[in-house]
Computed example of a mutant assay.
Amino acid sequence: MAIFVVCPGCRTRFTVSDKFAGKSGPCPKCKTIIQIPKLEEQVVIHEPEMFSSGGRGISGQLTLKPIARMERRFTPVMILSIVGGVLVVFVATLVLGHVGVFRDNFWLQAIGLAVVTVPASAGAYEFLRNQEDLQPLRGRDLWIRAAICAGGYLLLWWGFNWLVANFVTEELWTWALVIPPVFAAGAFVGYLAFEIEFSAGLLHFAFFSLIAVILRWAAGLGWIWTLPTPATPYPVG
Rank of each mutant, 00 (worst) to 15 (best):
227 L>D: 01
131 Q>H: 15
73 R>M: 03
102 F>C: 00
218 A>C: 04
116 V>A: 15
45 I>N: 08
59 S>I: 12
52 S>D: 14
30 C>L: 00
10 C>E: 06
103 R>Q: 12
45 I>G: 09
15 T>I: 04
25 G>S: 01
143 W>H: 02
106 F>S: 06
224 I>C: 00
150 A>C: 09
121 S>P: 04
90 F>D: 10
194 F>L: 07
43 V>S: 14
80 L>A: 09
149 C>K: 06
194 F>Y: 03
137 L>G: 10
19 K>Q: 14
118 V>Y: 09
113 L>P: 07
126 E>H: 13
54 G>N: 01
233 P>A: 07
148 I>K: 13
157 W>Q: 08
157 W>D: 13
187 A>R: 03
65 K>G: 04
93 T>K: 06
18 D>Y: 03
181 P>Q: 05
231 A>M: 12
195 E>V: 07
90 F>M: 09
1 M>H: 12
147 A>M: 04
154 L>Q: 03
145 R>N: 04
93 T>F: 13
202 L>N: 14
50 M>F: 13
134 L>F: 14
230 P>K: 03
184 A>K: 12
57 G>P: 02
142 L>H: 05
218 A>D: 06
50 M>C: 12
95 V>E: 05
131 Q>A: 11
228 P>T: 11
116 V>S: 09
84 G>Q: 08
114 A>V: 10
88 V>C: 08
139 G>R: 13
21 A>Q: 05
5 V>T: 06
160 F>D: 03
36 I>V: 01
162 W>D: 04
119 P>S: 14
187 A>L: 04
145 R>W: 03
236 V>F: 01
180 P>I: 11
208 F>E: 03
97 G>L: 00
152 G>R: 03
107 W>H: 15
8 P>E: 01
78 M>C: 04
197 E>S: 10
132 E>Y: 09
187 A>I: 09
123 G>Y: 08
221 L>S: 07
127 F>A: 10
112 G>F: 00
233 P>R: 13
54 G>W: 00
53 S>G: 12
76 P>T: 14
52 S>L: 14
1 M>E: 12
3 I>R: 01
114 A>H: 10
127 F>W: 08
115 V>T: 07
32 T>Q: 07
220 G>V: 00
18 D>M: 14
80 L>N: 15
186 G>Y: 01
179 I>C: 02
117 T>V: 13
220 G>Q: 01
77 V>K: 06
130 N>L: 03
206 A>C: 11
233 P>I: 12
211 I>G: 06
66 P>M: 10
208 F>N: 06
150 A>H: 00
142 L>Y: 04
221 L>N: 00
207 F>Y: 05
48 P>L: 15
84 G>V: 10
33 I>Y: 02
87 L>C: 05
78 M>L: 09
190 G>A: 07
200 A>R: 08
155 L>I: 05
19 K>I: 15
153 Y>P: 02
169 T>R: 03
126 E>R: 13
188 F>G: 14
166 N>V: 02
75 T>P: 05
229 T>R: 10
169 T>H: 09
198 F>H: 08
59 S>R: 14
71 E>L: 14
45 I>H: 15
229 T>P: 01
189 V>P: 08
62 L>G: 05
15 T>R: 04
236 V>I: 11
232 T>K: 08
35 Q>R: 04
90 F>C: 08
73 R>K: 15
197 E>Q: 15
217 W>Y: 14
202 L>V: 14
167 F>Y: 09
109 Q>I: 02
212 A>Q: 02
85 G>T: 04
